[in-house]
Design a protein around this nucleic acid. Structure first.
Ligand code: SF4
Length: 230
DNA sequence: CTCCTGTCCT
DNA sequence: AGGACAGGAG
């Protein structure tokens, strides 16, 4: 079975009812995709901070620089000042560098494929997949920390991260839907943020609990395992 | 793979 | 005050 018992269908059904309304999102089931610029900006900000912290910064950036051209033309100091408080200032520099490439070399159009997105400054594997799925509807395997947790539990992958990354991504890939790929990516991340939380997953409210292997085994809270660093 | 960032949390 | 976090870069 390629579709893992309609995992995606159940998750999308849950998302239709429980999606967080976030400023950079379109509502579940929209026929249009979200604005690539807004998706990119939010994802870069979200790389380092929580949703609640990002919301006001995102609003200020979008109000002041509503398009990638406007951001690209902003002075460095203005962008750095607007970024102040978010931390990771190297990422703000990458943000600006990326905006300038897209604005000046790509006519202001973000590429739609992961491979092309990956080449832009500040866009790594996760962000490339997220933008291509959410803003372009591509069937990309979007795997961030939240998704790793959900999938490690649902498939009960007990091998520790980061070594288990590939195995987890492979299991995630088996669960991808044929359509609504952007909604699906966000549904999985919302599930990780709202239900399949790190310490105390709320399996009673989970749309995929019926075939969740870790829930059945009773060790969901212990997954994903991680190799101790020191 | 290791290193790195700064804010948030404890 | 110290560590956790979470992605990207090298
Ligand atoms: S059943 Fe529990 S552990 Fe499994 S995916 Fe749902 S919330 Fe996570």
């Amino acid at each position: 079975m390629r579709n893992q018992g309609d995992f995606a269908a159940r998750l999308l059904g849950w998302y239709d009812a429980h999606a967080r309304a976030l400023p950079w999102r379109v509502p579940p089931g929209s026929d249009r995709c979200a604005d690539p610029y807004a998706v990119w900006l939010s994802e870069v900000m979200l790389q380092q901070t929580t949703v609640s912290a990002v919301i006001p910064y995102f609003a200020r950036f979008m109000a002041r620089w509503p398009t990638v051209h406007r951001l690209a033309d902003a002075p460095d100091e203005a962008v750095m000042a607007a970024w102040a408080g978010l931390g990771y200032y190297a990422r703000a520099r990458n943000l600006l560098a990326c905006a300038r490439v897209v604005s000046r070399e790509l006519d202001g159009r973000f590429p739609g494929t992961e491979a092309e997105l990956r080449r832009l400054p500040g866009i790594g594997p996760y962000t490339a997949a997220a933008i291509s799925a959410i803003a372009f509807g591509a069937r990309a395997n979007v795997v961030d920390g939240n998704v790793e947790r959900v999938i490690a539990r649902h498939a009960r992958i007990t091998a520790p991260l980061p070594g288990a990354k590939r195995a987890i991504a492979a299991e995630a890939g088996r669960r991808l839907p044929a359509a609504r790929c952007g909604d699906y990516a966000q549904a999985l991340m919302d599930l990780g943020a709202l239900v399949c939380t790190p310490a105390a997953p709320r399996c009673g409210a989970c749309p995929v609990a019926a075939d969740c292997a870790a829930h059945a085994a009773g060790d969901a809270a212990a997954l994903p395992a991680r190799t101790r660093k020191p």
